[in-house]
Design a protein around this nucleic acid. Structure first.
Lengths: 284, 284
DNA sequence: AAAAGTATAAAAGAAATTTGACAGAAATTG
DNA sequence: CAATTTCTGTCAAATTTCTTTTATACTTTT
């Protein structure tokens, strides 16, 4: 039962001083601001014993219990930027791995969004969309497919996209080309790979901008990265999920495309034509 | 100056354990929930002295100062009545592309789950987990990274996983090897690729089982596939999202691992040891 | 091998809560 | 209107909880 409802249920028993407290318990921002019983009492112009007496009347142990109940409710309310997934496995299969995974997915994306700096996101989209900059991408053991996916779509939107090979022998010539007009996009999640850190350091020294995609723990590359996005990757297996990373990447692609819808459309038409020409693909 | 900015400014000085704390300081709901330094430390899996060191590094007296700064900011943000419910994306950014994309993601996964045959899912997991079967994977222009991702994880769980190259010159020898003990995993979304259909037909003729991952419209390969999963891929760009596909794939990996947790654990340990031996990766 | 970083645990310190006693105010009642 | 009851605030002391310090051992990195 929510604290609001408790207040409603007990309103008949409340005394004048206690009623003065009610608005302070119902207002979210005040609940956050007024951390101690003393501050709350002062704000509501009552005494601290009155606060405790009210908490007891509502059925709590004392003030801390009441306060943590309020906070838990507030946190729960703020927590859901994403709608919960609806689908369920039939017949009491609530604990089917698919449902567990779906649950984790929502959590991962929620947490990723919670940490996302929208301004940085927009800046990065602008940076990557600007074809004066050359883009180099590198992924790790697990994240390489995501880097490929990103490179694939970036390549459809613009020129100058280069996916680095996982074998380091091909790196030197790429590094040589890096300058202030270069962006190195690094995907680095646990277990963080030392060579990627080196690559980032060297590239940064050449003047390249570093854009890092990492996990909830944060790669050491964060220290030198110009932009950094963390994507939570909890999974019901021993390995980390890269779904939230893929989500970020696809959304960046969408943002870039939306920046220059006209150019984008042109380029897509050209690609489509080329696909038709090479006849690799089936119609429709 | 906001705590977020302080974190950004000091990110170069932060150590690994301190970085682990960052998401907990940036996420609103966590800031509300985690009241004491002890709970925060436990949640972020660091020690309480680490929390205090970070607080000092950011310029605060101690943990309480840091915490009240965070709460003050949060209260300020929540205060604006309009933004009350969505404290996340500030100032009417409801239509920010990230929010739209998140919305679409949920829809995609919901639709994918609604269409998912749980029995088929379990059967496929058993099939793929059985190391008597050899597995061949093929992906298309857009879906190749997902195929790679799947192959990557399957390869960590078992032997006999073979990712087919996108260039068809290498296909014949693979096709030759296919028999009743073979499984061909095909990723085929619009624009459906004719060569993949051919490959599936030939493989089926050889006796191989066909497992198809496709989009909401359904690839023509569905006709000959033994198992078929549809993953919806609406995206706020001109291209389709493969996030729901990646979700299915990762969940299958989890299901396979859960079938034989012991073997899995052994294999993982071996992999970890090998990683240590080759010294490619940084510890922890 | 040395240095930096980190966890643990115990102890000290600080802050907040709670208690209890009491007195004054307000409301109620006869 | 006076007596009574209830409510409330003040204050100080007791208690509890939380934070901070310190020292040590262990791990990781250089």
């Amino acid at each position: 039962m929510l604290v609001r409802d408790l207040l409603e249920n007990h309103k008949a028993e409340l005394t004048a001083a206690e009623r003065r407290l009610v608005p302070f318990l119902r207002d979210d921002s005040l609940a956050i601001e007024l951390q101690s019983i003393t501050k709350l009492a002062e704000a509501a112009q009552v005494s601290t014993p009155t606060v405790i007496r009210l908490a007891r009347k509502l059925g709590f142990d004392g003030f801390p219990s009441l306060q943590s109940a309020i906070r838990a409710e507030l946190a729960e309310r703020i927590k859901q930027p994403l709608a919960k997934l609806e689908a369920r496995a039939p017949k009491g299969q609530d604990d089917h791995i698919v449902n567990i995974a779906a649950h984790m997915l929502v959590q991962n994306v929620n947490q990723t969004l919670a940490q996302l700096d929208f301004n940085a996101f927009d800046e990065v989209a602008a940076l990557l969309g600007n074809s004066e900059n050359s883009i180099h991408l590198i992924g790790g053991r697990i994240t390489w497919p995501v880097a490929y996916h990103f490179a694939n779509h970036l390549g459809m939107a613009r020129f100058g996209v280069n996916l680095l090979n996982s074998s380091q022998s091909a790196w030197p010539q790429t590094i040589l080309d890096m300058d202030e007009k270069s962006i190195l996009v690094v995907f680095d999640i646990t277990r963080y790979e030392r060579m990627m850190e080196r690559l980032a350091e060297i590239s940064a020294a050449q003047g390249a901008k570093i854009l890092l995609f990492t996990d909830q723990w944060g790669s050491p590359i964060e220290k030198i990265a110009d932009y950094c996005f963390r994507a939570t990757g909890e999974a019901p297996s021993s390995w980390d999920s890269t779904v939230a990373l893929a989500f970020l990447v696809e959304t960046l692609v969408a943002a870039i495309q939306n920046q220059a819808p006209q150019e984008s459309a042109n380029r897509i038409r050209q690609i489509e034509e080329m696909i038709g020409a090479t006849e690799i693909f089936r119609r429709s």
